[in-house]
């Protein structure tokens, strides 16, 4: 790759042994299309092997390489250095999360808050179906649209880092957890509306939001947590005014005939040939289905 220019990486590194930050500057030769993560990998391989940072997928899917680049939370793997139009990049670890080393932060509080809002489909009295799912739930494309954009969340914690309320109130659930609460409330398969509304209805829940909107601005996937928080508030007020009560989740899809027949087939006893014959029968029935 042809080097376009040299860019200085000013890295604000957390030194856990000393309990303070140290700023190190590295000069990185940049080629066209090079990402900040590739710059960090270059530094680790060529200039300072002790530099600590997180990475995994390198394609904005896992969300683990979130850092603050020139004052804004971004994914290092999804940010091209030349797009930043700067000869000096200032890199810092994410804010509002405990520091571990250099650019690495501990995501535990973030995931604990996400767990608080029960980020899974809740079905009343559907324990058996929940643990041993037999069929899918029926959902129209319009119903999917209701929560689709919120399901793009990577749990990268960029919104959590950008949120000014999370910085001042450590108990605040944060934009990701609140957005995720709305994501499941808006899901027609879910029946946990009232349970989740009770969880987020607190000064540390959706009422703590100041509408700064920095969470939506920071999201690398275009999810709008600020909107979700406002929609949560609307749901809560509608509940208080008696407009909404417990919801009935989407029904299960009708059983498919060949699946039911396949369940009825008992495994043959001790003969491989018999088993092959039964499997062939099932496969033939399967192929015959429209």
């Amino acid at each position: 790759m042809e080097t376009v220019k040299n860019v200085k990486f000013r890295i604000k590194r957390w030194i856990p042994e000393e309990g303070r930050f140290r700023v190190d500057t590295f000069e990185v030769p940049v080629f066209k299309g090079m990402t900040v993560l590739e710059g960090l990998i270059y530094i680790k391989e060529n200039l300072d092997p002790s530099l600590a940072f997180r990475r995994s997928c390198r394609m904005a899917t896992c969300g683990i390489c979130g850092i603050i680049i020139n004052g804004k939370p971004m994914l290092a793997c999804a940010t091209q250095i030349l797009h930043l139009n700067s000869d000096v990049l200032t890199l810092e670890p994410l804010k509002n999360l405990p520091l571990v080393k250099d650019l690495v932060v501990d995501h535990t509080p973030f995931f604990e808050k996400q767990r608080e809002i029960k980020p899974y489909i809740i079905r009343e009295g559907g324990e058996e179906e929940y643990w041993n799912p037999s069929r899918e739930y029926l959902q129209t494309p319009e119903e999917v649209e209701e929560y689709l954009q919120f399901s793009y969340c990577l749990t990268c914690a960029l919104c959590y880092s950008a949120c000014p309320i999370t910085g001042t109130n450590p108990n605040y659930l944060g934009p990701q957890a609140l957005m995720n609460a709305y994501r499941f409330i808006a899901d027609s398969r879910d029946e946990g509306l009232l349970i989740r509304l009770d969880i987020v209805d607190s000064p540390d829940g959706c009422w703590g939001c100041h509408l700064a909107g920095s969470c939506s601005d920071a999201c690398p996937k275009g999810v709008d947590p600020a909107l979700a928080i406002q929609l949560l508030r609307r749901k809560i007020i509608e509940r208080d005014l008696g407009y909404i009560k417990a919801v009935k989740g989407a029904p299960l899809a009708p059983p498919l005939p060949y699946v039911e027949e396949a369940k009825e087939v008992k495994p043959p006893k001790f003969t491989v040939r018999g088993a092959q014959k039964k499997i062939k029968e099932i496969m033939e029935k399967f192929v015959e289905q429209p």
């Binding site: 209805d201 000064p203 829940g205 009422w207 809560i236 007020i237 208080d240």
Partner: peptide, 9 residues
């Protein structure tokens, strides 16, 4: 009192 009642008021 629920937080939402206070906000509604």
């Amino acid at each position: 009192m629920k937080e939402s009642y206070i906000r509604l008021i």
